[in-house]
Nucleic acid binder design. Structure first.
Lengths: 353, 353
DNA sequence: CTTATATTCGGGTACGTACACGAAATTATC
DNA sequence: GATAATTTCGTGTACGTACCCGAATATAAG
């Protein structure tokens, strides 16, 4: 039962009704000093009555402040091109935000080298950005970085994975636990009682990425809840080259009951390659992320399912969250879980990463 | 290798360089008369050199023209609340576009009554809208409507399903064929060689919605391509009440080899209800759309998968396509297929319709 | 060459908000 | 009660573009 006749009113109308100038109204709107309590309350009253909505277009045009955003995330690498998508999201946001006087500085680091992260954060902070988009890969270092951001009261948005115990402005990314849980459900349709499942964490980071573990946790929980009895073999491969992967996998596959391989990140492409070489494409393979390499194997039926969570959109939405907060002064959802998408040979063409 | 130093230039700078006033530049920009060929070419040259991008914010603020959009789609009904989502998308777009001086008129019809459609289109055209969003349920009537729109040169965007042989400004919706194809793929994982599959079209429209048939086509194509031999039973139920559905289904289920039910639209909720009553929740049930009713059965494991294609976003994007075309003068993708989402008990919480 | 008519252009204001600057009103100080 | 200090407020300009109106220039008609 909203009022339909909400004609768009502006500060001028408010000023007229309050018998003051628009400048005074403006001061009240922005909570700036120089207004007596009495007139302030009167104006606030009128603003509420009229349900005044500032004209964002005019506001943007008149506002001179130029904001600076900074992003820090891993660089796309040989090992995985996953991070190309988030960067694209950032670029898209940059494109749109330019008109609004916002510039974006990009800091990329090597996700296999914590030092590069520390170095880049230092460089970043020197620029004194007004808002930061962060992919917190290294827990310890990120915590320290967050500490500094808090001191300088710069809002930070996380993407891709959360930082346990830290509260930034917002988190935009997957619910990792549920993601693993879903995988288990999917796989439950594919296995027979006598089959075994091989779960693979393939990453160079010694302190295995916490988000891989969260996925495993979700997976195992589902499996237990359902009371399934199939064997569940977990394995961590600390090298990402094909050689090492082949070595480990072929050894495991001597266990002939293994029928499903579940790779907890984008390295599924490497596993697919190995399976093809071993001529074991009969096995079911499930993994993460929409990468070109993986799509090739998806088409060839080597990979059966890819689970994906719109990495580009994560970054884009993260940037927009900063914009909403810093420019529009709007409240921002502190957690924005991305949908859990299941990609197959049939629908990948229509997936926008 | 783009130029980084693209400082934002405006008409003022162009005017200065061309030794003319900004009014003249404006005339060239909008291709208005009153400029000699010589100066026109000079200005166009400079515009190109500077890679001038008009400031959309300022343009919007200064532009007085008020556009009127109109939408026409089925009303959300007792039978299915599917159309609530697209309407929400429209409302969201309306909310955002208000600031830009765009109003939205809504015309809803009864999807079981073609006459209401005709009536509403007539009312719509009297308002002489500048752009139209159309869900073309009735092929014949929609074609006639399109004819009138063409005569009045009003751009039309389709959502939800395309209109064969008609070319509007754009189509935003699912690739129905692929959608059926994917379902078949999904189901292929779930059936044993001796199982049968029951495909159900449940709709009151006599000339069965063409998009249901497109889905069936995709499904059958996959099944043939793969050389599967399972029995595929297709059935059209012309009444949507539980009673009728139960009657037909229980009769079919005497065929004890049926193990999978595939419902080609949102009436899957009704089927789920029937299966529960019949105590046949052991059967696998797959259907369409993210409706509350269906989610209930998804949670209860009666429905196993829902295929969904972001109906809200379809409408939202459709509206924005009109905006891009009519306000920003930007080219619009003529076909925008939505991703094909697979919803399960595990990921439905994170699905935004 | 003068006057009339078309053509080509520039000045100026408006869109709704932000903010600098200074004026007016109020309060404090002696 | 006069002056200073402080508080409170209004005027005016700017943001970049759209477009009205009238002025200047060019072309046509006599």
């Amino acid at each position: 039962m909203k009022k339909e006749s909400e004609e768009l009113v502006g500060v001028k109308e408010i000023a007229r009704r309050a018998n003051v100038s628009i400048a005074t109204v403006d001061r009240v709107l922005h909570d700036r000093p120089g207004v007596s309590l009495k007139t302030k309350e009167k104006i606030q009253q009128i603003i509420k009555e009229l349900n005044y909505q500032p004209n964002i277009v005019a506001r943007t045009l008149a506002s001179r402040k130029k904001l600076k955003f900074a992003i820090i995330m891993p660089a796309s690498s040989e090992e995985t091109s996953y991070w190309k998508a988030p960067l694209d999201g950032v670029l898209q946001a940059e494109q749109e935000l330019r008109q609004y006087g916002i510039s974006v500085e990009k800091y990329l680091f090597d996700q296999n080298n914590r030092k590069t992260f520390v170095k880049q954060t230092a460089a970043l902070l020197q620029q004194k950005p007004d808002g930061i988009l962060l992919a917190p890969m290294f827990v310890e270092e990120s915590n320290q970085f967050m500490q500094q951001c808090r001191e300088q009261s710069i809002p930070v948005v996380f993407i891709n994975s959360d930082l346990p115990g830290q509260s930034g402005l917002a988190y935009v990314g997957p619910d990792l636990y549920q993601s693993g849980y879903l995988s288990a459900h999917l796989i439950s349709y594919l296995v027979r009682p006598s089959d075994s499942i091989l779960m693979l964490h393939i990453t160079r980071e010694l302190e295995m990425d916490h988000h891989l573990l969260r996925k495993e946790e979700g997976f195992r929980t589902y499996w237990q809840e359902q009371g399934y009895t199939q064997e569940l073999i977990t394995m961590h491969i600390g090298q990402t080259d094909t050689e090492t992967i082949r070595h480990h996998i072929s050894r495991q596959l001597k266990n002939s009951s293994i029928r499903v391989l579940f790779v907890t990140n984008s390295r599924v492409a490497a596993v697919a390659k190995v399976l093809e070489e071993l001529d074991r494409t009969d096995l079911l393979l499930i993994g993460y992320d929409f990468l070109e390499d993986s799509i090739v194997y998806l088409k060839k039926n080597v990979i059966d399912f890819l689970i994906c969570q719109k990495p580009q959109e994560q970054a884009y939405l993260g940037m927009m969250a900063l914009y909403d907060k810093l420019v529009l002064n709007q409240p921002v959802k502190s957690v924005h879980f991305m949908p859990i998408d299941i990609i197959t040979r049939e629908n990948y063409l229509f997936y926008n990463n």
